[in-house]
């Protein structure tokens, strides 16, 4: 099980049913003086045990797409399918079961917390005392360690006592504790330092390779997409403008917007030259 073994395989072309799909999904918002189409007829398939990265301009509809997939926001039109089943309008216990399988880590770690709960309370909520052959404490300990936190230091803290990156790490740990089939990560590592970030990506890689976790990884950081993703989708203005295997999209982009996006990426050493001349 190395990082590269599954990265180079072709994307599921064996006709198997995708774990999660968006089919012709549209989202319109009413805003002052009209409406905007935040997601414009987008279809994407998520294949089992693959990481799909969504990159694109700010405001291009990435988070909106994720919110609809997660059934946190109604679609204007289109269908969301989970394991081949239409889940666009499921309710009640069916929806709760869906939310157990599909976990999310949101872009903004500052709003996803209940301010009155400690980290420990947040992590224990709606969990039973025994998780397989692990106690809940052991599970919490393990998942916090994935993101470089010690249970002892973290569980008694309130959200306002945590730094930005610490909150983000608690959210990742919380999602992993649920043992999801699909993880939607929306800029989930943006506030982590380079070392913790690569460790978190390694955990996702490992869960993908070992347990077949399917990941939707929204990021502005092409370096992270390059390291982790099997496939890449590029969004601009609500539309998917390019999609394909990571190697193809990043190293041989076809679409003009993708090319522009990649040309702007700074790198550690090369970027120094550009400022000195």
């Amino acid at each position: 099980m190395t990082a590269t073994s599954s990265q180079n395989e072709a994307v599921a072309s064996d006709g198997s049913v995708p774990v999660l799909s968006a089919v012709n999904v549209v989202k319109e918002f009413k805003v002052a003086g009209g409406h905007i189409t935040a997601v414009d007829n987008v279809s994407v398939d998520f294949h089992a045990g693959k990481v799909l990265a969504v990159v694109g301009e700010s405001g291009s509809g990435k988070s909106t797409l994720a919110r609809m997939l997660l059934r946190l926001m109604p679609v204007t039109s289109g269908t969301i399918k989970y394991l081949g089943k239409d889940v666009t309008n499921i309710k009640g216990s069916e929806l709760r079961a869906y939310w157990r399988d599909v976990q999310a880590v949101f872009q903004d770690p500052f709003s996803s917390f209940n301010q009155f709960f400690t980290v420990g309370q947040t992590l224990r909520r709606r969990m039973s005392a025994k998780q397989g052959d692990e106690s809940l404490d052991e599970l919490i300990e393990r998942c916090l360690s994935y993101v470089g936190l010690k249970s002892r230091d973290a569980v008694n803290k309130f959200p306002h006592q945590l730094s930005g990156g610490q909150r983000q790490r608690v959210m990742i740990a919380r999602a992993l504790m649920m043992n999801p089939k699909v993880l939607l990560a929306d800029e989930a590592t943006s506030m982590l330092d380079a070392s913790l970030r690569v460790s978190a990506l390694n955990v996702l890689q490992d869960l993908r390779d070992r347990l077949g976790l399917t990941v939707l990884f929204i990021t502005h950081d092409i370096g992270q997409a390059c390291y982790l993703a099997d496939e890449v989708v590029v969004m601009e203005n609500g539309l998917v403008v390019e999609r394909g295997l990571t190697d193809d999209v990043i190293f041989n982009p076809q679409n003009a917007y993708t090319k522009r996006l990649l040309a702007d990426v700074p790198d550690l050493k090369g970027s120094l030259k550009s400022r000195n001349n």
């Binding site: 990082a3 590269t4 990506l201 370096g223 390059c226 990571t246």
Partner: peptide, 13 residues
């Protein structure tokens, strides 16, 4: 630990 978007990043752990 910085991940630059290069072919090398794609294949290293």
């Amino acid at each position: 630990a910085v991940l630059d978007p290069t072919e090398e990043t794609r294949h290293k752990h």
